[in-house]
């Protein structure tokens, strides 16, 4: 996976931090995200795969910017692959920690597992983790408009379910 493209002279001078620091900074958040996307059992393999993929690409990083979004990008791709492979009945009910959720999202999050996978990822990244649409687009491998569209149609679908 290509590292984030954006660079500045200063960021290049700083270089990527030692991997240990990147891992320590993002592992908890990425783990919670994967549990939310996949359930606890599948999240363990996905967590390991996420950080192994990050390590494989890490040597080519030339700067320390956008590392959080980059971690979520890799985790999202791993999670989408995993959900594609897993039969729906093997997915556990998602666990939703309410403390770090926005109220509107928290009310609807228990329904999010039924969303199509890209909509689910877009909704969770936007409202659960506050990533902007440029970063969500990168994670989904889509355009920014498509990412915005996926999140808003996911929210519409959730509202409809919530109201039903």
């Amino acid at each position: 996976m290509a590292p984030p493209r954006e660079t500045t002279a200063r960021a290049e001078a700083l270089g990527a931090p030692p991997f240990e620091r990147f891992y320590a900074t993002h592992k908890e958040e990425v783990y919670r995200y994967l549990v939310r996307m996949l359930g606890r059992q599948l999240a363990e393999d996905a967590f390991q795969e996420t950080f192994l993929r990050a390590l494989r690409a890490y040597g080519d990083l030339r700067h320390a910017r956008h590392l959080r979004a980059w971690a979520f990008t890799i985790a999202t791709r791993v999670a989408l692959d995993e959900r594609r492979r897993a039969r729906p009945e093997s997915l556990e009910a998602p666990e939703i920690p309410v403390a770090d959720s926005r109220p509107a999202y928290a009310e609807l999050a228990h329904l999010a597992d039924e969303l199509p996978r890209t909509e689910r990822a877009a909704v969770v990244l936007r409202y659960g983790y506050d990533l902007d649409y440029a970063d969500i687009a990168e994670a989904l491998g889509s355009s920014e408009d498509a990412a915005r569209q996926a999140a808003s149609s996911g929210v519409r679908r959730l509202r409809a379910k919530g109201a039903a």
Partner: peptide, 23 residues
């Protein structure tokens, strides 16, 4: 909910076993 210690340990072992570390 935090990363289980056993998972953290597995990742660290695997990263080294796969030859992915500089140090």
């Amino acid at each position: 909910m935090t990363v289980p210690a056993s998972l953290d340990e597995r990742f660290r072992d695997r990263a080294a076993a796969d030859g992915l570390l500089d140090v």
